[in-house]
Design a protein around this nucleic acid. Structure first.
Lengths: 129, 129
DNA sequence: GGTTGACTTCGAGCGCCGTCGAACTGGGAA
DNA sequence: TTCCCAGTTCGACGGCGCTCGAAGTCAACC
């Protein structure tokens, strides 16, 4: 192993476990441009730094909130362009935030339908009992 | 048009518009067993009753809460078996309710990450200004 | 009677997001 | 030294949920 490897650097397998993705997915994210090319050790293996892992973690949150991979790629591209895209990135997050709020409102509405049906079933069961 | 057509019965196109699905999807749902075979008029065209539309509406809510088509099919099968499956249907909804609540909790957590990032960008922008 | 347009069935195709197998390489332990 | 394991690249494949095109039918309207 490369002498320059820091204790805080992880293999693809370790990084995958940390962020709850598979090694397949990690390599695929990199290939898709969601993650900047990850550093390699002397034998060509990926070494994930703490900041790579943080980035991956953020991606999992974006993904979980339903952001399409396409938009995550756009975000990653902006991030790679440095400080001058801070505003654009904030705008992107604010727009996404709005979508997440809308989604939450939808879910609350749907939950009411679910509760209504559960209650209706309960009453129907009593009726038959 | 069939003389027996009730004013409340809709063509596939009308039903699709009402519930916010496409005609393709409506036919596909039927084919997949998510909807019991819909009545036809004298020339073989689907006629959706009010209760068909209500059922479709419920399906859209289940779908929107992330219930897989597979589970919706299972639910539809139970519903077709009549009152003796009321308990099973209620259990299915209760289990799904739990998943929806978990999903909402996740979203709230993710929203906090989003808000944190938005704020971080805002502060970084001020820093540069 | 001819045209229009919404319907019918059928099977194929698509977009998204991974997931995997094959074939190979390199480092660490026995 | 040999073995094993985790890594590497590449391209193919899979599940899910639709989506669509083709070819045909039928009621309605001009």
């Amino acid at each position: 192993m490369d002498i320059s490897t820091r204790e805080t650097s992880l293999t693809v397998g370790e990084a995958a476990e940390r962020v709850g993705l598979t090694t397949y997915t990690l390599r695929w994210y990199e290939q898709e441009g969601l993650v900047a090319p990850v550093g390699r050790d002397s034998s060509g293996r990926r070494r994930y730094t703490e900041s790579d892992v943080n980035w991956l973690f953020l991606l999992t949150r974006l993904r979980r909130t339903g952001m399409p991979v396409r938009d995550m790629r756009r975000y990653a591209e902006l991030a790679r362009q440095g400080d001058r895209t801070l505003g654009a990135r904030r705008a992107l997050f604010e727009a996404h935030r709005t979508r997440v709020l809308a989604r939450m409102a939808e879910l609350e509405e749907d939950l009411r339908v679910l509760d209504y049906k559960i209650d209706a079933y309960r009453r129907a069961e009593e009726e038959l009992a």
